[in-house]
């Protein structure tokens, strides 16, 4: 925890609670039919998202797949604009065109959620090529689920990044399941980070993805390495407490398994760490939680009061001028 002050740690706590409360609200709105389509919750993986984004500098880049709300919030996208996007409103992050899976902010170098598994990996390599081409000190943190490691994009992208020494951290958020398929049913090598060897890149190992400080430290190390030397492949061992998406019957895992992981809730664990480290912090943490609840309520109010897109919005912005 060297160099991490109380303000920073409390802000991480705030972000983790924000993701949790924001998504709980999303689930509620989904059940009310206000959010449509497919909703993939990040609940349970907050420590991985918050710890890893905290390790990035403003000039660094983050890009991920469709389970993107947590990372978007951690990177600093406005909860109001995200919620408006969830509700398909004109004031949403992408004006209601993208929805839940395609949150992005150019200003914050958050290059988005992507709806096609693995499709964003070679784009991450392209963004990293830009940094190298312009000789800029920037790192690209590319998140993917464990399921994405078996599609062809993974192979081409990792090889290319190694051949060209691109500054990319390939971070597998290993939550145990690609939709409903357990890692050992989909991958010959179940320790996914070990594939680094085959590509001739640094094996960044595994980190406890339920421990925000451990994730922060591991990604910080990887970022330092990547900016000087080239790509790193690593795994954050995490777990999603909810189904793959809303309405997942979860026949592929037992209730006992979910309960076992829930006992190691990253937010509860982090709260415990903070309470042990700082005397009398409990009151401050409670206040943070109250403030987060208010932020989420404001976001919902903003989204619900925002206008729906028009026909003109539908046909606009097919081509850039």
């Amino acid at each position: 925890m060297a160099g991490l002050n109380k303000t920073t740690l409390l802000d991480w706590y705030r972000q983790m609670v924000l993701i949790r409360r924001f998504e709980e609200k999303c689930a509620e709105l989904y059940q009310q039919g206000k959010i449509g389509g497919f909703l993939h919750l990040y609940i349970g993986q907050e420590a991985t998202g918050v710890g890893s984004v905290a390790a990035l500098r403003p000039q660094d880049h983050a890009i991920t797949a469709y389970r993107d709300h947590g990372l978007a919030l951690a990177r600093g996208l406005d909860p109001k604009a995200i919620m408006a996007e969830m509700l398909g409103k004109r004031t949403g992050v992408s004006g209601g065109k993208g929805g839940s899976m395609h949150l992005a902010s150019r200003e914050l170098n958050f290059w988005g959620g992507y709806g096609i598994v693995g499709g964003h990996l070679p784009l991450a390599a392209g963004i990293a090529l830009k940094a190298k081409y312009n000789e800029e000190d920037e790192v690209v943190l590319c998140y993917m689920g464990d399921g994405a490691t078996n599609i062809g994009y993974f192979h081409e992208s990792l090889n290319l990044s190694a051949v060209w020494d691109l500054p990319v951290i390939w971070l597998v958020e290993n939550n145990g399941y690609g939709m409903g398929t357990a890692v050992d049913r989909a991958s010959g090598q179940v320790e996914l980070h070990k594939r680094a060897v085959g590509y001739g890149m640094k094996d960044g190992g595994r980190v406890d993805g339920m421990d925000v400080i451990a994730v922060y430290e591991a990604i910080s190390d990887a970022a330092r390495y990547a900016s000087k030397n080239g790509p790193v492949l690593m795994e954050s061992m995490t777990y999603r407490f909810q189904g793959h998406s809303m309405g997942d019957p979860e026949r592929y895992r037992s209730k006992e398994e979910v309960q076992r992981y829930a006992a190691g809730d990253p937010i509860g664990k982090f709260r415990q760490t903070l309470v042990e480290k700082y005397k009398d912090v409990a009151g401050e943490l409670d206040k943070i939680e109250d403030a987060v609840v208010a932020t989420v309520a404001e976001a919902v109010e903003y989204a619900e009061n925002s206008p729906a897109p028009t026909y003109e919005d539908l046909v606009a912005h097919v081509y850039a001028d």
Partner: peptide, 15 residues
Amino acid sequence: LSIVAIGIGAALADL
């Protein structure tokens, strides 16, 4: 696929 995709990523980043 990566010839094209690396181009997309680089184009997004203004190359």
